[in-house]
Design a protein around this nucleic acid. Structure first.
Lengths: 212, 212
DNA sequence: CATTTATGTGGACAGTGTCCACAAACAATA
DNA sequence: TATTGTTTGTGGACACTGTCCACATAAATG
């Protein structure tokens, strides 16, 4: 693939404008959340006239949706890394619990380290009559829900989560973690000192573990 | 106070433009969330030229912050009503549990019935060096946190919540409920059928109750 | 009544999304 | 190889937004 992406290019054709716009959009989202990803700024960074974007995206919402999917995928990748770093050299029960906690902690860490991407990942997008709730796989084919499902399955297998409570349990666990992230990022917990937030995390995860 | 608020007025002065703008803003937020509350449309509904708004609000963000506070207050009022409707003619423990559940249910019902207001209430506003996290009282002086605190205190008094776990417990409970609301409104649970969401609610509240 | 202050008006500017007609480069085909 | 057609980027325009400035008007104050 041609590498020339930045700078006022000499060729009329761009080469891979769609990718360039998505990258620019991601960078904008990273810095300023969903509102910052604007068509004109993205095209500007790609060194192209605003209207060029319409050859690759139907409108701003369409570009934003693509950026959103990429951001969600980035979150999943980050979580996956933490999950994979766990060594299963322990009792199944301890391993299952550790998995759940690692996932929750990674989720919250991502929200803290990449607030723009996190906000963008969950900026209300209307699904076009989507099918199953948790089935919008990102680029890498992994999404946060599925990872949660893995951890919960481990808990069932280890006997620390009754099988009847397994169905839809990811939504419960997920709600708790997601809620804390949102309250800290955009909500009334913005002003809470970081160390206090940090102290809240293990308690929240314990609540999920014991309450499921 | 003069009642003439709508229609192309004849008087040069408006009478209570600040209130009119806030009302218009609330209506806009109700219909389309925070992005819909625009200076120009609010002034239009108030029958006034756009710039008039700047005599009462520093800028759009300032108006939005006022609308946000009012939306949060509306949420608190709705929760308070449900809480007051509970009859304490039962064991303290049952009453405390019922209080917690009523609060959570009211929160989620509000999110479902007034998505625009709910989104607006939690649309990232930067507090101007605010003090304590849960201390931004709305117009009515009540906010969601304080109500949660009441229910949790009842649980401690009833002996179903250990006193050591009491501090900051509202943030944990709140996170769970808020997270579900956000996932359903703006997140990947948008597509989930309402009856399935409804079934999730008691399970979520049970998780909080047992996990705290 | 005269003046000061609060409040709304008018006009302007930059920035945004989006539409339309046009132009340039590549692809396919005669 | 030369012609044709399709993809992709350009140029110009429009409506809409927030915000600034100078001005006008009504109310309050002396």
């Amino acid at each position: 693939m041609p590498a020339a992406v930045r700078l006022p290019r000499s060729t009329y054709r761009h080469g891979d404008l769609k990718h360039a716009l998505l990258d620019a959009g991601l960078q904008l989202a990273r810095g300023g959340g969903p509102d910052a990803v604007t068509l004109r700024e993205a095209t500007r960074q790609a060194g192209v006239v605003p209207n060029a974007a319409y050859r690759h995206f139907a409108n701003r919402q369409d570009l934003l949706a693509a950026v959103r999917a990429a951001a969600l995928s980035a979150l999943a990748v980050s979580m996956e890394a933490d999950l994979a770093a766990l060594s299963p050299e322990q009792s199944p029960a301890a391993y299952a619990k550790a998995s759940l906690r690692a996932i929750g902690a990674a989720y919250l860490r991502f929200a803290r380290n990449e607030p723009g991407l996190f906000r963008t990942a969950f900026a209300g997008a209307v699904d076009k009559a989507g099918g199953d709730p948790a089935e919008e796989a990102g680029d890498s084919g992994v999404n946060p829900f599925q990872l949660l499902g893995v951890a919960l399955n481990r808990m069932v297998e280890a006997g620390i989560l009754p099988a009847q409570r397994r169905p839809a349990a990811e939504y419960l666990a997920w709600s708790a973690v997601h809620g804390l992230a949102m309250l800290v990022l955009d909500g009334p917990l913005q002003a809470m000192p970081p160390e206090q937030v940090e102290a809240l995390i293990p308690r929240l995860l314990a609540m999920v573990e014991n309450g499921l």
